[in-house]
């Protein structure tokens, strides 16, 4: 396997980590206004992701810097071409990031309400926009021979991409709801269960439409072939099974299943993309691939050593953090945020 392929896989892993982890804290943020109007309750909800959300967001930063380093053209074309999308995403993430810290710092209900809605919007907007971005990446965008994006605003926000955005938003909401069933107690827990079931229905419906549209709009299915292997099939089965786990009150299993659904569908999308990283809708020859977008093999080699050393450190330290804060949060827990 060549270094370019290794780095394509590593970036897939980083994206998967990001969707898997930040996915549930986006979901918790989206559900915040619908869990309970009470301030103590809301604090309990926010504190279920309190120790984790910032560490989860670093997966996104890592995606960005790994793309910059391993595939500079991918990074440059994607981020400059998706300018309005990236701008919305950054502004949303900025509001969200400070909201967690600022919210509890004043007693005033209007102040708390501003930051509650910042958490909601700051979670919902990126949850939608990542779907929009991925849809455009696999469907293709106008890229010219010099690797520059030539489309406009509505080339990005096309119906298929918006559908994908709604789907990703619903799946993250489900993932977050399931996380809440695992991490809350009493009335909050019952509420999370209700919301999780509703989110599941919406996610199932949208996913079905999304799969059909993806078949019509992209070459993903042709590339996966007649026998796509077990991964895409399992991602669908895992999503379906979330409902049964919830019915059995097996919150941990339900979370494992929604995690598998997210991880396996991310993997499927990137496998369909490989070895391209950005598809040109103008001319297949102008697509960015892992070869024409990559850094030199010297740089990729050193990057690989860096990943080899630090990825285990990340897994261990974040794993340890999840282990320390494994208890459920109740309204009587001491809260930081």
């Amino acid at each position: 396997m060549d270094l370019q392929t290794i780095w394509f896989i590593l970036i897939t892993i980083l994206f998967t980590g990001f969707f898997l982890l930040e996915g549930f804290d986006f979901g918790v943020g989206i559900l915040l206004p619908f869990m309970s109007p009470g301030d103590r309750d809301r604090r309990a909800v926010i504190n279920t992701i309190g120790p984790f959300w910032d560490g989860n967001e670093v997966w996104l930063i890592s995606v960005g810097s790994a793309m910059f380093g391993a595939f500079p053209h991918w990074y440059a074309t994607l981020f400059s071409g998706f300018y309005p999308l990236m701008l919305c995403m950054i502004v949303a993430l900025m509001f969200r990031g400070v909201a967690f810290e600022f919210r509890s710092k004043q007693e005033n209900p209007a102040w708390r309400s501003i930051w509650d809605w910042s958490i909601f919007g700051g979670s919902a907007v990126p949850a939608i926009l990542w779907g929009v971005a991925l849809a455009n990446i696999i469907r293709g965008i106008p890229i010219d021979a010099s690797m520059n994006y030539t489309g406009g605003f509505f080339d990005l926000f096309n119906p298929y991409a918006l559908l994908c955005g709604l789907t990703s938003c619903c799946i993250f909401t489900l993932h977050g709801a399931v996380f809440l069933t695992m991490k809350t107690t009493a009335a909050l827990n019952a509420r999370a269960m209700v919301l999780a079931k509703r989110a599941w229905s919406a996610a199932m419906m949208l996913s079905a439409i999304f799969i059909v549209c993806t078949f019509l709009q992209t070459d993903l299915f042709q590339r996966l072939g007649i026998n796509p292997g077990i991964v895409p099939v399992f991602s669908v089965l895992a999503l379906i099974s979330v409902r049964f786990m919830l019915n059995k009150n097996a919150a941990g299993w339900a979370f494992a299943m929604s995690s598998i659904a997210i991880a396996f569908s991310t993997f499927t999308i990137f496998r369909g993309l490989f070895p391209r990283v950005l598809v040109s809708s103008l001319n297949p020859k102008w697509s960015l691939t892992i070869y024409n977008a990559a850094s030199s093999s010297y740089t990729l080699g050193i990057l690989s050593i860096v990943a080899l050393i630090f990825l285990p450190v990340i897994f261990l330290s974040q794993g340890w953090s999840y282990w320390i804060f494994r208890q459920r949060t109740s309204v009587d827990s001491e809260v930081e945020y």
């Binding site: 670093v58 930063i61 890592s62 790994a66 380093g69 740089t299 860096v306 990943a307 630090f310």
Partner: peptide, 11 residues
């Protein structure tokens, strides 16, 4: 920039 930025993020 690849290596320094990757170490910055990943570590």
């Amino acid at each position: 920039f690849g290596v320094p930025l990757a170490i910055e993020a990943l570590f």
